[in-house]
Design a protein around this nucleic acid. Structure first.
Length: 99
DNA sequence: CCGTTGACCAGGC
DNA sequence: GGCCTGGCCAACG
């Protein structure tokens, strides 16, 4: 049973629209918490397929190595399938990042 | 209860 | 551009 903090994080992540991404820091700021806690919450990943955790990236657009399902490769595939383009193997274009 | 652990970030080199 | 460092704080054991 996750704490209320995690629940709030999952609700924010669910609101990220398809074809866009948000940084850990932006999600954290909406709740007034530390960005590291956001990563911690997504790592537990309680609802695979329901929570679009692949739409959360670093502030500079690069992907995390610790993605729970197959690492960066799996995450990149999911994002490309939504029409998101990359500037390098593991970094999305800044234009897709929400504030 | 307390020490450790991160899917982070900003700043410096 | 990359790598290192310190700080951050909820969750876990």
């Amino acid at each position: 049973m996750p704490g209320e903090t995690f629940i709030a994080i999952y609700e924010i992540v669910k609101r990220i629209p398809m074809g866009k991404v948000a940084s850990y820091g932006v999600v954290a700021k909406q709740l007034g918490i530390n960005p590291r806690v956001v990563g911690y919450a997504l790592h537990s990943n309680p609802e695979p397929g329901v929570i679009p955790c692949h739409r959360v990236v670093f502030k500079d657009g690069s992907l995390s190595k610790g993605f729970a399902f197959g690492g960066e490769d799996a995450q990149r595939e999911l994002l490309e399938k939504e029409g998101i383009r990359f500037v390098s193997q593991s970094k999305v274009k800044s234009e897709y990042i929400l504030n």
